[in-house]
């Protein structure tokens, strides 16, 4: 059984590497992982100069009570704060495509029918697929970790401390769990959908709902405001509508929980969100994949475009 799962996983990784679209998305993600350090560094330098200029202007006007520089105590990892948004945007969509293509490819070519008519169990097959996806995403996060680590080392001309390196590792570990959830969501719809485009669009709609609609319902923040990596500390509106929405949606809002944990690991902000809802989501969607493949009818016509 283990041998079969390992073979399917290996084949999955090989197929992914051969796919041009996956390579394109991976290139975009890794480019942004390197670029985010540069953006963070450049913005940090500029804002320090802006603060110095503002202090100069205020002093010239005779103002004596000048607020302290709010950027003095920011941790080095904070220059990577954009990574939270890139995983939230690019990472999760790339994960959806990885999950989607892993099963759609087999259905499109009619291979799933042949495989399931052999002695390979459906469970072993889907476990192999999930294992392959896990390994691919882990590899991507390890490369991103290395890129971030070296970018910061080059920018600050010294290595990260052990606790900082641990925080960075924990951030990419959390990102892996977040991306895995979306990858398995893509895999689930690839198993159960009757058309290829619907199999791709359905998880994207889930992604929009989780990423933008749920946070909007709990905080009244507009979708584009949610893309700012700086924590928005405006208190949520206090009326019945938001209180009910908050009590129902807040524990399940995994995108908010991911961003909050990411910010606390990289910028030292406090996080009021636990990781466990994300783990619960992951388990539910993984279970759904098993259920979907169990119900998969090999006699059905080929998938539509």
């Amino acid at each position: 059984m283990f041998f079969t799962i390992a073979t399917v996983s290996k084949s999955e990784i090989r197929s992914l590497i051969r796919q041009k679209t996956f390579v394109l998305m991976l290139a975009v993600f890794l480019f942004m992982a390197s670029f985010s350090a540069y953006i963070g560094w450049s913005t940090k330098n500029t804002i320090r100069s802006v603060y110095a200029q503002t202090v100069k202007e205020m002093t010239a006007q005779g103002i004596k009570e000048i607020p302290n520089n709010p950027f003095l105590s920011t941790p080095p990892l904070s220059i990577l704060k954009n990574m939270v948004v890139y995983v939230f945007l690019i990472g999760s969509l790339m994960a959806i495509i990885i999950g989607h293509s892993s099963f759609i490819r087999e259905r499109r070519a009619g291979v799933s029918k042949i495989i399931f008519s052999k002695s390979i169990g459906k469970w072993e097959f889907v476990l192999g697929k999930m294992g392959g996806i896990f390994l691919a995403l882990m590899l991507i996060n390890v490369i991103s970790f290395a890129l971030s680590f070296f970018s910061i080392t080059i920018i600050f001309s010294h290595f990260l401390s052990i606790s900082e390196a641990f925080n960075l590792l924990a951030f990419y570990g959390t990102s892996l769990v977040y991306m895995l959830f979306f990858a398995y969501l893509g895999l689930f719809f690839a198993i159960v959908s009757k058309s290829e485009s619907l199999a791709l669009l359905a998880p994207v709609m889930f992604w929009i709902f989780i990423s933008f609609v749920m946070p909007q319902l709990t905080s009244a923040l507009d979708p584009t405001a949610l893309l700012n990596p700086t924590s928005i500390q405006t208190p949520a509106p206090q009326n019945n509508f938001f209180q009910i929405a908050q009590s129902i949606i807040h524990p399940f809002s995994v995108s908010e929980s991911y961003k909050s944990i990411g910010r606390s690991l990289l910028q030292g902000d406090s996080s009021s969100y636990p990781l466990f809802p994300l783990v619960v989501y992951l388990i539910v969607v993984a279970g759904s994949c098993f259920y979907g493949v169990k119900q998969f009818n090999i006699c059905e016509a080929e998938i539509d475009q």
Partner: peptide
């Protein structure tokens, strides 16, 4: 999503909640 986000986060005024 990406290009508008880059522009927004590079805005010095956006670095602090409520505006620098």
């Amino acid at each position: 999503l990406i290009i508008p986000q880059i522009g927004d986060t590079m805005d010095p005024d956006n670095q602090i909640p409520g505006g620098f």
